[in-house]
Amino acid sequence: MLGEGIIKGLAETARNFFGSYVNKERLTTVQYPEERLPRIEATRDFPFLVYDGDDWEKGLRCVACQICEKECPPKCIYIEKSKDKKPDAVGKPQNYPAKFDIDVSVCMSCQICVEVCPFDAIKMDVQFELSSDDRFGGLLLTKDKLAKSNEYYHEIHPTEAAGVDAALAEDREKEKEKQRLAAAAAAAAAAAKAAAAAAAPPTTVAATKDGAGSGGAAKEEAK
């Protein structure tokens, strides 16, 4: 019958229309600013820097190795390495980023910086309402805007953060163990040297130099 198809279609629309009053699944609209969908855990948009502890400047995990800067496909990361070194979580002296800027107007949220970071220092944020009336400055995130605490990271990506924390704790334990052994060895060597030559003041200097050397080697490896 001519018109049968049209009637069938209209019946379908009617079913959907009236269904939307009784069936939640047929009414999928969300009134956005007031009402929000539950956040999906894996969601990502722009990167941020993780810090441990309370002080963001002291606790930044980033050691300014510049791998992410090199690997970033649209080259939106800008890092300036510090001249001096600061002790990191296990007390090893490390560089830190004197400047760490991400231009989020260029960033394409690909997550490659997170994948290549050997220090778990950069992670993906979920903050998407970044509109600003300052077109260039407002979208250039500097270090202080990027730094966010590990607790925040746990809040937005709980499963991933727990995994990262466990791996980091293990690494740090190993590193501490290595340091302890190195220190013990250095002390033993120093004692032996002291025993051999009664007056030998520069031994302590040598020990610290050793420590710095191993730190540098570890960083080279990471690169």
Binding site: I40, A42, R44, M108, S109, Q111, I112, E115
Partner: peptide, 25 residues
Amino acid sequence: FEALTGARMMCNYMRFGGCRCDLPA
């Protein structure tokens, strides 16, 4: 897709020799 890769449309999911991440719970 968002639950798996983190993005609805720009998934960036495959890697050479596999996929970037496994399925979440």
